[in-house]
Nucleic acid binder design. Structure first.
Lengths: 205, 205
DNA sequence: GACACTATATTTAGTTA
DNA sequence: GTAACTAAATATAGTGT
């Protein structure tokens, strides 16, 4: 079994179940994440779309890949909806119901139950960490944050970085091929690139 | 050339340039988006990661695919960070370069300036559209919104739906294989599924 | 305009350097 | 950790339905 073929080549794996070994998971994650980014970037170039991919590794590290304008929209949403979201979404329900988007109604009805659930859950969480009560996450000192929140903050900042650097890339590369640029932030310090995309940063830690 | 081979099979295309024909773009978009989702869902199952993919089609329709908890984080961010963003990213880049968790504080300081800027900008924008002043986007009537804003609202709602349905799926499928569930929302009314994921909704329009 | 097909292009599991 | 390498597994361009 070693003279005929040099390797076993790609083996089939069951994509419907989690990889057993931690190591395998990590390797697969790394390889496939790259693949996903590549696919994403190709989709962007080929079709001129905007794209954002967010991944959290098994160990909780945030990874992201994005083609600019997605986050512009995200920001816009963010700007206009200070804390819309769940938390009483009735206004939304009404607005939507009144406006021809009929199918949304059912979904939103289901929503209210979920909202209740989330509300309660949120309250509980809030009670466990007093200091958090009145300060937005972004204004707290890192030390005050539990590991979980810190992680989320990191994620957010990573996103922010991506956004900013996308903008920069846009400005510098600018008018060239097309007004396009993609920034990718990785939890790891790898730095391959895909086509004309591929701005990579190193991990925080 | 028609007796030997039935088809030309897959042809090589230049993935570094936009597809010429509008039709090709659409077809490629559709096919590759599916592929991307599939890859994404496989990555999730294989490695137990959390994932969110957002795409805006050439025509501006929002598409998304997500594995639950990503959007939990997104919501948190949304709740705690009314507005923030690019505009002068030098500080951030530097901090990034220095690269430690302590630098996050610096970034946050710089951030507050950004926030100020965005706030102003937001105010200006708000002045141009009176009705928007005090109402969050989500409470406005669709008719009052410009096409652009309406689109963003849709995107947001689509995300919201995804989130909700993820939760629902979690609750129902629950303890099974693992506490995992993915919801995919598409601008189109397709409804294939990937593994045990794949909740699809129809388009708004 | 979603599906099915088929031949080829591309990705990647397992392995080795 | 990581950077190839190889063979097999998948994805998909072009096509027809």
């Amino acid at each position: 079994m070693d003279n005929n073929k040099q390797t076993k080549g790609r083996q089939r794996i069951d994509t419907s179940k989690r990889r057993e070994s931690e190591e395998d998971r990590l390797i697969t994650f790394s390889k496939r994440r790259s693949g996903l980014y590549k696919k994403g970037s190709e989709l962007c170039t080929l079709c001129g779309t905007q794209l954002a991919i967010l991944i959290f590794s098994p160990s909780g590290k945030p990874f992201s890949f994005a083609h600019p304008n997605i986050e512009v929209i995200a920001r816009r949403v963010l700007e206009t909806n200070p804390r819309s979201d769940d938390q009483d979404s009735n206004g939304v329900m009404d607005a939507c119901r009144r406006n021809s988007i009929d199918e949304l109604n059912e979904q939103l009805t289901l929503l209210s139950n979920e909202v209740e659930y989330e509300k309660e859950r949120g309250t509980k969480l809030a009670q466990t960490t007093k200091a958090r009560q009145n300060k937005p996450l972004c204004e707290q000192k890192i030390d005050e944050l539990g590991g979980y929140d810190a992680q989320k903050l990191k994620a957010w900042l990573l996103e922010l970085q991506a956004r900013i650097n996308n903008r920069l890339e846009e400005l510098s590369v600018a008018q060239a091929t097309r007004p396009s640029a993609v920034g990718a932030i990785d939890g790891n310090a790898s730095s391959s690139s895909y086509g004309h995309w591929g701005i990579h940063f190193k991990n925080f830690n």
